[in-house]
Write a protein that binds this DNA or RNA. Structure first.
Lengths: 136, 136
DNA sequence: AGTATTTTGGTACTTTAGTATGACTTCAAA
DNA sequence: TTTGAAGTCATACTAAAGTACCAAAATACT
């Protein structure tokens, strides 16, 4: 973040400098007007692309939008959803139990209910279906 | 796609026009040089952002890019990779065997090898790791 | 207070998944 | 031609996952 601010500050400084040089060059007749305008255009074009890339990457990568409506449609309870998320992390029933301070039996019950609600035969299939529904 | 070409064509035309007007205005002394340069800079800046947004959205949405280099780094063989993909589809070993016309034993061998190569304890964990590596 | 849902957990059982080991085949490269 | 990697399959085993059924709490809602 600090790095980003520094880069942008330097960029703005460089552009202002360029701007001044351009005006001076045109007025003093050292450079052709079209040429200066073209340079300015290209530079700002590149800057536009660069800035956009920086900002877009954050928003697009964060596009893990979860379909909460679908979750309630499927009548998946909060606890079951926690278990589903843990499954997607690759945890075993025992590991999920330890993580949530529950017994393995309870996790098995939740998983079984999840499989019915997601119409899946296995936890891996449940993951695939959950991804299709965009609920994980 | 046709729409995109049309928009870009019009855009380029408009820019060329703007370019000519700018040169004329400066030479005839109707406008101040700094002002024209500023306008050009802003317009190209916006165009840069716009074009980048258009092109990036396609690449990012298509970002199901598979890291083939990582696959060979992990020494995952083609057959093993097929099995990995089948696992991500939520299939059981038996189902994978039927799909690939192999015995369940063979699938178990492949899965076992995959788990070692991906350093996973379970197939669900293998999926999670494979997604991190962007190989599925 | 009473009812419904959620959450929790147990037992007993079946099915899948995964490990270990060995063996045979194919096919390409040294 | 031998060497090695890849692919195939089997047996025997252990571990994990999943089912069925039940039951008691804890919460939420009326």
């Amino acid at each position: 973040m600090k790095k980003t601010i520094l880069v942008f500050s330097l960029l703005i400084l460089a552009l202002i400098l360029l701007f001044q040089i351009s005006s001076y060059s045109i007025n003093s007749g050292n450079l052709k007007t079209e040429f200066v305008i073209a340079i300015i255009a290209i530079i700002f074009f590149i800057v536009g692309i660069y800035i956009n890339k920086k900002s877009l990457h954050k928003t697009v990568v964060d596009s893990k939008v979860i379909n909460h409506q679908k979750i309630s449609e499927l009548e998946i309870t909060p606890r079951e959803y926690e278990v589903l998320q843990s499954i997607s992390e690759g945890l075993s029933n025992k590991e999920i139990a330890d993580k949530l301070f529950l017994s393995e039996s309870t996790i098995k019950t939740h998983v079984s209910n999840l499989l019915v609600k997601l119409n899946a035969k296995r936890r891996t299939q449940a993951l695939q279906i959950a991804k299709e529904y965009q609920i994980i």
